[in-house]
Write a protein that binds this DNA or RNA. Structure first.
Lengths: 226, 226
DNA sequence: TTAAACACGTGAGAC
DNA sequence: TGTCTCACGTGTTTA
């Protein structure tokens, strides 16, 4: 009944006209903001109308943001051209599950980094024999330049020496498999494992340096082994 | 002002009461369906009201379907717990791009099946020398039990013998690399390639046996290259 | 005619 | 306070 463009030309007469449409407006749930019949409230109603307009505009922006992502997804998922929103999202769910499963299978088969951070610590059998603590650590997280210096520093602090390391980096993720030996004779296996877990969890979740934004994040491929 | 449960108990008095709220209802855009002041229209309005109710119920079902998929996606995407819908979808887009990229990287590097069906046919250099047609075929599609018998039958029909085959199956996908020799002397290289492409496209898109429902029902589209 | 799908403007609640 | 997000009921369009 009233579009946005006519808002700036709003006049008391218009208000009267609009008011005449409803009575007992407190109870009727109109799509117009409530219009007091006493016209001295006009400025208030005007403000309300403007608020309502900005509200609907903000809501439109929100809808547009969501729909923009949906149409991006549509381009990413083949054969989703003519699907409705729910169907599209169902395909997306399937697709993501699928890709994750395959990525996981691949990492299992090829020992490449998994896409979830993980820390696995195993005690080697020789530990009890040699009176040394020997642990094997498998560690996955996002790759970033400072990772190794942080790892080295942390391991040094824990008085651990690296006997063997196998590092695989793929698609912005990194997987490290270490064989570590403790040179701290007073440390128990239990506390050592705990400290290691804390250290690695910290390193895994520590944010990257601000200027290291992986541009393609996935276009890097290098494979290191020792 | 009136919830669903009171609908079945709708009475003319109620209608009068509701009618009293508005006048000139043709022009006021109420959230109630239009209520003619003449009560002889009551059945019509009742129908309209019931239609409106089923409409809003259907709309609610639609919203629920969409939101169910969104919350499934939320579980699949880490760190998306407290994101709004647009943010969640942005993460999903990123995630899908990421996973696709990684899968592609992997298949490129490791010669494992890609997630899109593809047929690549190359003519071997010796073809011209030996007066034989030798082609190398790289073929990816969804894996299923009948695939090989279909392939064998198809290749036999085209009078092709398999000189060499390298087959990799991973995550419900399969990649076959064949070296094929034509024993049909009257066939041209061009027509042979075309027949092969048709055969492989048919096999790739042919539906699996009903009892072999692979869990990962991937969308497929076709990429042909020579 | 019915049913499904969408965009819209609004009220409620969070912060 | 204002700003943002969400669910809701509605009008419209298409099949």
């Amino acid at each position: 009944m009233m579009d946005d463009s006519s808002c700036s030309e709003y006049l008391p007469e218009t208000h009267e006209f609009l008011s005449s449409w409803c009575h007992n407006l407190q109870e009727v749930n109109c799509q117009l903001p409530l219009i007091p019949t006493n016209s001295c409230y006009f400025p208030t109603w005007s403000q309300e109308f403007s608020a309502s307009r900005s509200h609907s505009e903000a809501e439109k922006r929100r809808r547009d943001r969501i729909n923009a992502q949906l149409s991006t997804l549509r381009k990413l998922i083949p054969t989703s051209e003519k699907m409705d929103k729910a169907g599209l999202l169902r395909s997306v769910v399937e697709h993501v599950k699928d890709l994750k499963e395959r990525a996981k299978e691949m990492s299992t088969v090829l020992n490449t980094p998994s896409d979830i951070d993980e820390v696995i610590i195993e005690e080697e059998d020789e530990s009890s024999i040699n009176n040394n603590i020997l642990v094997k650590v498998s560690f996955s997280c996002d790759d970033r330049p400072e990772l190794f210096s942080e790892l080295n520093r942390g391991l040094k602090n824990l008085k651990l020496t690296t006997m063997e390391a196998n590092i695989t980096s793929l698609g912005g993720r990194i997987k490290c498999i270490f064989s570590l030996q403790s040179i701290n004779v007073v440390c128990t296996t239990h506390s050592l494992k705990h400290s290691l877990r804390v250290l690695l969890a910290r390193i895994a979740t520590s944010p990257s340096t601000p200027n290291f934004r992986i541009k393609s994040k996935r276009q890097r491929f290098f494979l290191l082994a020792t």
